[in-house]
Write a protein that binds this DNA or RNA. Structure first.
Lengths: 154, 154
DNA sequence: CTGACCGGTCAAAGATATTGACCTATCGAC
DNA sequence: GTCGATAGGTCAATATCTTTGACCGGTCAG
């Protein structure tokens, strides 16, 4: 049994994550919408930008989706000349993906809104809080939870 | 133009949010899957639990979805006796939603995994980092970003 | 009585994701 | 050179989710 006031804190945290994440994705989503694109397109642009010359397989592992789910949006982005494929590497089976200048522009536009939002929150909260936020998020993003207690133990 | 090392920090933050949120929802999603339910069902259970006797309209505003999108999962939950409808309030147009004991159990199971995950991250990081995390998230969840600069200014 | 509101439903449409099967090209090892 | 494994792609069927639009009944307040 968990301390009730601790529970209250944890539930506030859950809600902050829910509403925070929704706010966080809202603006990019609306920019994408104007071009008929979705959140996956942003993710592709983002991670190709962050990992230049990444392979399709590498992207699949980062995004954790099926290759069929990646294939369509990725093709759209290459057709729109936002993502380019580098030829002639050592292993010719592997495609190396990069952003085109135009792709970089859109990515900067999309991610820029998120960086500004984060930046505003960090500045308002101060450096210590920013550092604390990062440390907590690092745990949150990496923590594997132990196999949950056999149904209904709560 | 943003300081490059600042950019790097902000991009790290973006990735932490992306991967962190995905980790965060993973376990509840798999519990729900076993019952043929989805994330919306969890959200309904969560917010009905947090706001006992909430109206359908209130729930719609919290979740920010169309009433058609709410209607099906909500009906499923009431049919499964996880959510109950309180009758006879002052305004008889309004339904008051509450969790049944069984609904409370499932909600506790789902949210419990998230509370344990958060709790583990908070404990590992320490009280100061926890407080900092909360303050940053509060800004993040509430900050309205100024209208974005006219396309391509990035 | 009437307009506004709460709740619900049907229908059409589109987007998103999945699994499964199958294909080519290439690589590395034998 | 053959062969198994890998990278990438595609078609198809299926399922889910969500949206907009149009309506409905019941209820409330003036």
């Amino acid at each position: 049994m968990v301390d009730p006031s601790r529970q209250e804190t944890l539930r506030r945290a859950i809600e902050l994550l829910f509403f925070g994440y929704r706010e966080f994705t809202d603006r990019p989503d609306r920019i994408l919408e104007r071009r008929g694109l979705g959140r996956v397109h942003h993710r592709i642009l983002y991670f190709v930008g962050r990992n230049p010359a990444v392979s399709v397989k590498g992207l699949l592992e980062i995004l954790a989706v099926s290759k069929q789910a990646l294939s369509v949006p990725l093709r759209q982005l290459t057709e729109m000349k936002l993502v380019a494929v580098l030829a002639g590497t050592s292993d010719r089976r592997v495609k190396r993906l990069v952003l085109t200048p135009e792709g970089r522009r859109l990515e900067a536009d999309l991610t820029g809104t998120q960086m500004r939002r984060l930046s505003a929150a960090f500045e308002a909260a101060g450096d210590d809080d920013e550092a604390g936020w990062m440390r907590v998020m690092e745990r949150l993003a990496r923590t594997e939870l132990q196999p949950s207690s056999p149904a209904g133990a709560a």
